[in-house]
């Protein structure tokens, strides 16, 4: 089945089997490998992207469900060499260790701030409950999101 999507402003079209997951479409067919597959059970959030501007887990969406929609992945955030403010906050606050969860964390965090521009620390922790960091680096991740939201941390 033909699946046409816009990813980071670019149009892509590809014939896929209906059972193809969106994350595999993005990684294997489009070649954008910043979006990671972690648990493949919609628990860990490593595969988080934006579907029409909202965070979703691309391992639990069929590519055919996204046909005609607009997606943003981690590769679509920076403007050339200039990092997105959330990426810059993660860098400044040392909010990554091994880095595997980072693309999903950043995408989830941006969606969180889109819905709540000034979250409390507790709201950040609840808002990121769908993302696991196996390095357990949550402290600095939460700090980075609060920093990006303009809180003094």
């Amino acid at each position: 089945m033909e699946v046409a999507v816009t990813i980071n402003g670019e149009s892509y079209s590809r014939e896929v089997e209906p059972r193809t997951l969106l994350v595999h479409y993005i990684r294997d067919f489009v070649g954008l490998t910043g979006t990671n597959v972690g648990c493949d059970t919609s628990s860990c959030g490593a595969c988080t992207i934006h579907l029409n501007g909202e965070s979703v887990k691309s391992c639990t969406i069929l590519a055919v469900q996204a046909d005609g929609q607009s997606l943003t992945t981690i590769e679509g955030l920076a403007d050339g060499e200039v990092l997105h403010p959330m990426q810059e906050s993660f860098r400044q606050c040392h909010a990554l260790q091994c880095g595997y969860c980072t693309p999903g964390m950043v995408m989830a965090a941006i969606s969180l701030l889109d819905e709540n521009i000034a979250p409390t620390e507790q709201e950040v922790r609840l808002g990121l409950k769908g993302n696991l960091c196996r390095c357990t680096g949550y402290h600095n991740i939460v700090k980075a999101v609060l920093h990006c939201a303009g809180a003094s941390v």
Binding site: G45, S55, S111
Partner: peptide, 9 residues
């Protein structure tokens, strides 16, 4: 229910 990503979809 689930988490924010799950509730978006």
């Amino acid at each position: 229910v689930g988490d924010p990503q799950v509730r978006h979809m």
